[in-house]
Design a protein around this nucleic acid. Structure first.
Lengths: 203, 203
DNA sequence: GAAGCCGTAACTCTTTCGGGTGACCGTCGT
DNA sequence: ACGACGGTCACCCGAAAGAGTTACGGCTTC
């Protein structure tokens, strides 16, 4: 019983993907999920042989979902779905263990070919390329506090203001800032905010 | 001859939307475009009665495309397509003159109903709501230079570094920065970068 | 139980930022 | 022709940021 799980936040894309995948020989079941949380929630009870997952999704985001899914089940086979602008996210997802990716401009034929290949060869894996020099696959796992500080930055708050909002001293906020910069590889708060957006950590 | 233009960067979504719209009574032609630039390029020669446009697209982005399209042709009827997270963008697009929006979770029925309505009544317009208090419909139209500076910021460059890259003095970069802050309503560079991402000005 | 990460906080020091202001030039629109 | 706007540059100044360092208690993890 070969089953494939399609995860994309847009129901239209989801449906289109579902239909496309269903035409692949050997695929008997195609299930869908609208976000990463749903995938993780259902993964315990209902595992698929292959997952197609959008990189850019609300909530967890594709990269973070891949990371969590693989830490729970290192054998999961995942192919990322992406648009050209998500290449950083794809690189991160592949570094985190996704088997490969499909550009959303891919033709139906390419999609079917890739899915066929991935299902036929359980060890199939795209050679990682274009990975960022720093943080090669290092999960930029920010703590709750660090994300709160990063969000404060993204709203234009100063360290002192963030401190007042979170009932912390400014110095503590600066410590969190320094640590999250290091984790993200950011050179300053503007860069950190940009990386936060690119990685789907903030919105 | 009633024609509808569907603009979405994902070919899958585009195709799904095209098929859904084609089933609306009275619609005789559905054309598609993959990005805002394409829409603008073709708008001179080939105008449609209604445009469905994704908010989140690479390049120009839906909001900016709406703005430019309407400044070229104030009569254009546009409905935004969105996911929950784009509400700021939707608000901006509606403020800029889009007639309404469709959530991407909308059922096929809702989509058809909205398209039918928009086509039947040329004056149909969603009452703007949830607009941000500041910048009510004020177009954050950044100049090329300002966007370059903003991009530099998003890559973690200091003003001096941006200056070196663009062959400008640091003081000039600071001037561009100050002006783009004012236009965006940003309190500092981190905020500006965040707003740049939220409005699709940078990626 | 030692090592490591996290949350908290303080201190110093240097660099950078951001606001204010003024200026010159070119272009575009009216 | 005038004004508005954009691109360029300069100077001043105070506030903020960021780097470095230290510290201490709590909590996992090995």
């Amino acid at each position: 019983m070969t089953s494939v799980l399609v995860c994309d936040d847009s129901p239209l894309a989801r449906e289109a993907l579902r239909r496309a995948v269903a035409t692949v020989p050997g695929v008997e079941r195609v299930t869908t999920a609208a976000n990463g949380e749903e995938v993780l929630r259902r993964w315990g009870a209902d595992r698929s042989d292959l997952i197609l997952m959008d990189v850019r999704m609300p909530g967890l985001g594709g990269v973070e979902t891949v990371r969590r899914l693989l830490s729970a089940d290192p054998g999961a086979r995942i192919i990322m779905l992406t648009v050209a602008e998500d290449l950083d996210g794809v690189a991160l997802a592949v570094a985190a263990g996704a088997r490969g990716y499909l550009h959303k401009d891919a033709s139906r034929a390419e999609l079917r070919a890739t899915v066929t290949q991935a299902l036929a060869d359980p060890t199939w894996r795209l050679a990682p390329r274009r990975l960022r020099s720093s943080d090669m696959g290092a999960a930029p796992t920010l703590t709750a506090r660090e994300i709160q500080v990063l969000e404060g930055m993204s709203h234009g708050r100063s360290n002192a203001e963030i401190g007042r909002e979170l009932f912390l001293s400014e110095d503590t906020v600066k410590t969190h800032a320094r640590r999250l910069f290091k984790k993200l590889g950011a050179s300053d708060r503007a860069h950190a905010v940009a990386l936060g957006f690119r990685w789907g950590l903030v919105r």
